[in-house]
């Protein structure tokens, strides 16, 4: 749905040049929710703004639904923009217009006949659950309601793509969840392609199918969210993930007071993804092999709809039994890392 090829953006200032995007190539599929995560200043905002040409790329090309956006003349660009919805961090609603008229705005721009436009606005109000707020001015709405208006407005002209520029960054966590849920519903109902940028891994975790990590103007990692979460390939991705998932074991645990006189002891980390998270593998291991298990640490999380997590276990018993027990866990599809072997 969106192809970005060798996109480079350089900002010229009188004194020097700033490289905001460095040879970015990305492909976003129809119907997916694609997230781009990066720290502020990494270039993610520039990237999303290039897609509807709010920012003019220095080099490279962008295709949206097969149409080369980067080479359109002004008139064609305006037409193309009507089919690319966008929502913003600060909502950008017109304070002089009611909720109804704000949603009507893009339809006026597109020249949709009045009667048809009004019925479309009512549909959209219903979709975002704000029918009762139609006559209210944005100044009277909460942040979450404002963003719902923003979403309705962005969908007015039945866009092929929805661009979300930090749309939840100004909202509290609960409101963020409700807006993300709305985006997910819209994505399913309308099979709408959504590209969102964020600095918050929680957003990626909750709604995205795939994610690209942008660091220092370059895409450093692209993959489906689950694999990036469970196996981040770069330090940048790793630090983003750590912000939301405690994948790192607290250091004092690995230094736990294991008594070497007592028995052979092993400290292992077990990672599990998906269905295995729901099975009683640990207890069946204990029953099968005559060993003791001490659970030192554990967590479970969810990426979109897939559970994943990890456990730090202290296994105590005969060395041969410990080997067998670990082999058993591996057979069941768990990933095992030995942290300490005494």
């Amino acid at each position: 749905m969106i192809q970005i090829e060798h996109l480079t953006k350089i900002f010229e200032t009188p004194s020097h040049q700033v490289l905001a995007l460095d040879d970015v190539t990305l492909s976003i599929n129809k119907g997916e929710i694609f997230g781009i995560i990066g720290l502020s200043g990494a270039g993610k905002s520039t990237l999303i703004r290039c897609i509807n040409m709010l920012e003019k790329p220095t080099q490279g090309s962008i295709y949206v639904d097969g149409q080369q956006i980067t080479s359109l003349d002004k008139r064609d660009l305006r037409c193309a923009r009507q089919k690319i919805g966008m929502i913003f961090q600060h909502f950008n609603l017109l304070s002089s217009r009611t909720v109804f008229d704000n949603i009507l705005f893009p339809l006026e721009i597109a020249g949709v006949p009045s009667a048809q436009a009004k019925s479309r606005v009512n549909e959209l109000l219903d979709l975002v659950g704000l029918t009762d707020k139609a006559g209210v001015y944005p100044g009277q709405l909460s942040g979450g309601q404002k963003q719902r208006v923003g979403i309705a407005r962005a969908l007015a002209n039945n866009p092929k793509v929805l661009l979300s520029d930090e749309a939840t960054s100004a909202l509290d966590p609960q409101t963020t969840s409700s807006i993300l849920k709305l985006l997910k519903d819209i994505n399913r109902q309308l099979n709408l392609t959504i590209l969102l940028i964020t600095h918050d891994m929680n957003v990626i975790k909750q709604v995205c199918d795939r994610v690209a990590v942008i660091d220092n103007s370059r895409i450093v990692e692209i993959g489906d969210v689950l694999s990036v979460f469970t196996n981040p390939a770069t330090p940048t991705s790793h630090s983003f993930i750590n912000a939301v998932v405690k994948n790192d074991i607290p250091e004092d645990l690995t230094l736990a007071k294991i008594d070497p006189q007592r028995h052979p002891t092993r400290l292992i980390r077990v990672s599990f993804i998906g269905s295995s998270a729901g099975q009683p593998i640990i207890s069946s291991m204990i029953r099968r092999y005559d060993i003791d298990v001490n659970i030192l640490y554990g967590n479970i999380d969810r990426v979109k709809d897939t559970p994943f997590g990890n456990l730090v276990l202290e296994l105590i018993g005969e060395a041969s039994l410990l080997d067998e027990a670990m082999a058993y866990l591996r057979e069941r599809g768990l990933e095992i890392e030995v942290l300490k072997n005494v």
Binding site: R78, C79, M86, F88, L94, S96, R153, N157, L163
Partner: peptide, 25 residues
């Protein structure tokens, strides 16, 4: 400026931005 940008992102032309965004706002 965000309001102008929002209108641009919807495909508004200069006249629409003047009459529907700048002056009413």
């Amino acid at each position: 400026w965000g309001l102008i940008e929002a209108a641009l992102s919807m495909g508004a032309n200069a006249w629409q931005i003047i009459t529907k965004v700048l002056l009413p706002e």
